[in-house]
């Protein structure tokens, strides 16, 4: 066993963990904002699928990863707008619309991919990283943390931005109120629907960006159903984090680590059925829920559409 736990093994494990964690982090942060405002977004899986497809096609056509990320975020934003109109403005059932968006967009992206590429799966060129001098040369952690695409650094920085928004800004307070007591926010003269719409739109854009990252950096190609439950993991992360962005980051890294354990073990020369390892993160979450379940905090008005004057 001594041969297994080498530097190479840990470096590969950590690099994979960070790469796998970023889409989960983006999805979780987005879902967190949406949930703070009281909107359960089950359509996030579909938003990621849309972002992955749009991001891949844009990057493939233009040759620029940044164009891909922009397109992915844009696609996610567009789906978020649909969700905002249906679930916030009109007040339709969030679970029904969420399931519809997830089903529909997974199917639609598979359809579009089939029409465009038939059965071929072209790859994008290797990702150009932004190497941070000195730090990138550190053993084990260097490549994983300091030799990544700039979007990785930006995503991690977003955790701080989100924490600041929730703690220090009017928008953060409004979101909190929109989730806890929308009527009070309404009385205070703030537009509840607009506040929630912001949450859903940000969630859509971040989920789309996460999807684009998954396709362009994580896999380097698009296949139908590429997201494979990443959006649902984002929902879980947001619920477990109880409104704290930093916990989304920790959770994403935990999930990312267990997702990358498979590849890392293969590098280390051990063959284990991938299914066993894929169970780890979910088992970890269930264990956490059993231990900390009582404290799972969700906004009081979670999942409820707001209509002025209704009780």
């Amino acid at each position: 066993m001594s041969g297994l736990f080498t530097q190479v093994f840990f470096a590969a494990l950590l690099f994979g963990a960070v790469t796998a964690a970023i889409p989960l982090l983006l999805a979780g942060l987005g879902e967190q904002m949406s949930e703070k405002g009281g909107v359960l977004n089950i359509g996030i899986e579909g938003m990621m699928a849309a972002g992955a497809y749009a991001g891949f096609v844009a990057a493939f056509q233009t040759g620029s990863l940044w164009a891909g990320f922009a397109a992915g975020a844009g696609a996610g934003l567009a789906v978020g707008a649909v969700m905002a109109i249906l679930c916030v403005r009109i007040g339709l059932n969030q679970i029904v619309i969420g399931i519809a968006l997830t089903l529909g967009l997974q199917g639609l992206t598979a359809l579009l991919h089939h029409i465009q590429f038939s059965r071929t799966y072209p790859r994008l060129p290797a990702v150009e990283t932004l190497r941070i001098p000195w730090l990138a040369d550190l053993p084990v952690v260097g490549r994983a943390m300091f030799d990544q695409h700039p979007i990785v650094y930006l995503s991690v920085a977003l955790v701080g931005v989100m924490a600041y928004v929730y703690r220090r800004t009017q928008l953060g307070l409004n979101l909190q109120a929109a989730g806890d007591k929308p009527a009070a926010l309404d009385v205070a003269g703030v537009d509840v629907l607009r506040t929630r719409t912001v949450g859903v739109l940000v969630c859509g854009a971040l989920a789309g960006l996460g999807g684009a990252f998954l396709a362009n950096v994580g896999a380097g190609l698009f296949v139908p159903f590429l997201t494979g439950g990443a959006g649902f993991i984002g929902i879980v992360l947001a619920m477990l984090a109880r409104g704290r962005p930093i916990w989304v980051l920790f959770g994403a890294l935990l999930f990312g680590a267990s997702l990358s354990l498979t590849t890392a073990l293969q590098v280390g020369g051990i063959n284990m059925p991938t299914d066993v390892i894929q169970m780890l993160p979910f088992a970890a979450v269930m264990l956490m829920l059993v231990i900390f379940g009582r404290h799972a905090g969700l906004p009081a008005a979670f999942g409820l559409p707001y209509t002025r004057g209704e009780r």
């Binding site: 089950i42 929902i235 299914d275």
Partner: peptide, 26 residues
């Protein structure tokens, strides 16, 4: 978890679903 701790069943059933699919494969 739902009955005694009030944990939202949407996430727990989803989690158990992912776990179950993997376990079935194993």
């Amino acid at each position: 978890l739902r009955a005694y701790q009030g944990v939202n069943e949407i996430i727990t059933t989803l989690m158990m679903s992912f776990l179950g699919v993997s376990l079935a494969n194993v």
